[in-house]
Amino acid sequence: MKIAFYGSSLLSSYWNGAATYYRGLLKALARLSYDITFYEPDVYDRQKNRDIEAPDWCAVVVYEATPQALMQVAARAAEADIVVKASGVGFADDALLRAVLDHARAGALTVFWDVDAPATLGQLRDEPDHPLHRALQEIDLVLTYGGGDPVVWAYRAMGAAECVPIYNALDPETHHPVGKDMRFACDLAFLGNRLPDREARVEAFFLDPAGRSADQRFLLGGSGWGDKQMPANVRWLGHVGTRDHNALNVTAKAVLNISRDSMAANGFSPATRVFEAAGAGACLITDAWLGVDLFLKPGEEILVARDGEDVAEIMQSLSAERAKAIGTSALRRVLGEHTYTTRAVLADAIFRRHFERPTVEAAE
């Protein structure tokens, strides 16, 4: 089956946290014999900051950020059996959604794939005239990369015919243990861009604990932090390309996950970096969110901090031996239960179920 997938970017993770999710899941779907074309706009300098070139398992079409180019690629939705519009494409999202729905052929499966469902649902609640309200009446299926039952119930209440979470996971060919790289030597590392709905939590869970722990080294990776006031023991790296993520995760004694506001409030939304870090065998500390125990066991496979004071206390008592043991246990768990191969099997079953449903005419 052919999939036309309209997303932010497959080729670049620059200001694009969904990149590794797209790569892992679409590569696994391609191995299940899906013929995939990914359409991404040339915005935010992503094409100047590519992490990968077009892979052999997916065709990639990069289009100019103009209304004319958008309509040209949207018209190609007519060629696909499954038409996917992801959230947060980054250029004329509402117009793109409308265009791909209009061009999808009769009988095609139309999918809205939400990579930030709690935030999207919050916007829908605040904006009763948002175009997505109307589109949900036409879309066959909503998939999300997290959110659990709260997101499923909310989307159904908004009129979605069906909503299923397809969680983030691990691609062990991409994220795996490697040798240490002393560029990333530190006690605690955090990797994330500076975003309005994350900054206060980074202050609370990372910068404040650093200020309490002058005897330890903290490493901050991600774009946008250049003018942020930080304790002297925090070193800012700037953007860290995906090719260096394994080395960073392996080298730091511990790696911190900090959820965005909406994800933390909703729960059941493990970030891609949770599985990436675990896949490298890192000792992961996460801010507390509902549902973490569904993915990794607190205290054995992941450490959970309720606030910055917890982070500081964990770091004061965390030995290198315990950190290694936690990372080893996490790696074993994600390899067994949380790979993109298992996620793709679920997505494949959902897609096939839709195509196998009898039509009203056939049923009569």
Rank of each mutant, 00 (worst) to 15 (best):
G148R: 00
A108N: 08
G238M: 05
Y145R: 12
E321P: 13
G327N: 05
V345G: 14
A69S: 14
N233G: 09
M158Y: 13
E199Y: 11
H175E: 09
P55Y: 12
D348C: 09
I52P: 15
T328W: 02
H130T: 06
T120C: 12
R332M: 11
Y340C: 05
V151Q: 03
M71Q: 14
W113M: 08
A204S: 10
R333H: 11
A320H: 08
W225Q: 07
G88L: 06
A80D: 03
G221V: 00
G238E: 12
S213A: 12
F5L: 15
N246W: 02
L296E: 00
P270T: 01
D93W: 08
T120F: 08
E127T: 11
A74R: 00
A119I: 06
G17F: 13
A135I: 05
I350N: 06
A117I: 05
D244W: 13
L141T: 04
D348L: 07
R183M: 13
A135H: 09
E199R: 07
Y6M: 09
R198Y: 04
P41S: 10
L290R: 12
V142P: 05
E53K: 10
L256C: 04
P172Y: 11
M230E: 02
R357W: 03
L220S: 06
V274I: 12
D307Q: 09
L220Y: 01
D149I: 07
A169V: 01
V60N: 09
G147H: 01
Q47W: 07
D45Y: 15
L101P: 04
I350R: 06
T174E: 06
R352W: 09
D149S: 10
G224S: 12
L141Q: 08
L170M: 01
A117V: 02
S8I: 09
L207Q: 01
V178L: 11
H133Y: 07
D102G: 14
L335G: 01
T110L: 11
R333C: 10
E162R: 08
R243Y: 10
V234R: 09
L191K: 00
T339V: 01
N233Y: 07
A157Q: 13
V202D: 03
K228C: 12
G107W: 08
Y6E: 09
G148N: 03
R243N: 14
D102C: 10
D181W: 00
L29P: 07
E313D: 12
G267A: 07
A169M: 04
T120M: 11
H338M: 00
D51M: 06
A277I: 00
F268P: 10
S329I: 03
T339Y: 01
L101N: 07
Y145H: 14
S319I: 04
F205K: 03
Y167H: 05
V83F: 03
G221P: 00
G146N: 06
P67H: 11
P298H: 06
G159Q: 05
A19K: 08
D215R: 15
R31K: 11
L11I: 10
D102E: 15
T342F: 04
N233E: 07
S33H: 13
F351R: 05
R105K: 14
L290H: 13
D293T: 01
M1Y: 07
L124C: 12
R353D: 15
